[in-house]
């Protein structure tokens, strides 16, 4: 589904990614872990099409189509979703209005009619229940005054509404208490099926207790240095990253 080949990227002339190779197949959950500054968030921004980063080499394929030259909204229309680590506030725009606009823009881009209002309402109700969201929440301004947990829950709510092919969860666990973490993870698990894929980017193993990955990759200094199964995350939790570094150097 998502294939990344020899990806190099820089921001303000500083090389951040130095040759990433990654293949995620439909139905899989992958996790990328790594110490601070390894390039984890850069990778997610680049897949989503943030133009502050420059791709200097390599390719990104979605279902066999090269997407690294596409605008961020075009990638979104093709099914790329990024759950932001720090979702921005948009004052005066309600959660409902925002998601309605997002859905209809995607439908328009894919040659479909706007979603009828009753269908939209039904979908919103269904998905907000999945994430145990208060109805009042939906009429609040997007992310304005939201707690950390509310922001992340809102991200996953949008993911549930948009039904992406590939969802990238960038540090979705940061700022979450244990209950919110459970709700968010539960939501992701329910949305997971054979036709989509999830890429979890995280610093800690905590989230992976709930969203169990098929593969865990360790990203260090702009490269994937180790790949393993779910147990690799536990090992990292226990031993930290230094041993991998030493392994590399050895």
């Amino acid at each position: 589904m998502l294939q990344i080949k020899n990806l190099h990227a820089s921001v303000e002339d500083k090389d951040i990614l130095k040759g990433i190779n990654l293949e995620i197949k439909a139905g899989e959950v992958h996790a990328i872990m790594g110490p601070n500054g390894a390039g984890k968030s850069t990778l997610s921004s680049i897949i989503a099409g943030n133009e502050n980063y420059e791709v200097t080499e390599g390719e990104i394929f979605l279902d066999g189509e090269e997407i690294s030259e596409l605008a961020p909204e075009e990638r979104a229309h093709k099914g790329v979703f990024l759950s932001f680590q720090y979702p921005v506030e948009i004052p005066g725009v309600s959660v409902t209005n925002f998601i309605k606009t997002a859905i209809n823009e995607s439908r328009k881009a894919n040659g479909k009619e706007e979603m009828p209002a009753n269908e939209m309402l039904k979908l919103i109700r269904e998905k907000s229940e999945l994430l145990e969201m208060d109805r009042k929440f939906l009429s609040r301004s997007l992310n304005e005054g939201f707690s950390g947990g509310e922001k992340k829950r809102n991200e996953i709510f949008q993911m549930a509404m948009l039904e992406p092919k590939i969802a990238i969860l960038d540090e979705t666990d940061s700022g979450l208490d244990i209950d919110a973490l459970r709700i968010v993870a539960n939501g992701v698990n329910k949305l997971k099926n054979e036709n989509n894929a999830v890429l979890v980017i995280t610093h800690y193993q905590r989230l992976l207790d709930y969203i169990v990955p098929d593969f865990v990759h360790v990203l260090m200094d702009g490269k994937i240095v180790k790949t393993g199964g779910a147990d690799l995350a536990l090992e990292l939790e226990e031993k930290g990253y230094d041993w991998i570094k030493q392994e590399q150097e050895a």
Partner: peptide
């Protein structure tokens, strides 16, 4: 960018904001 990522083109994003 946040709007773009959700499939909302820049023009429409500005109007929304």
């Amino acid at each position: 960018f946040y709007c773009n990522q959700r499939g909302i083109p820049t023009e429409k994003a500005i109007a929304l904001i």
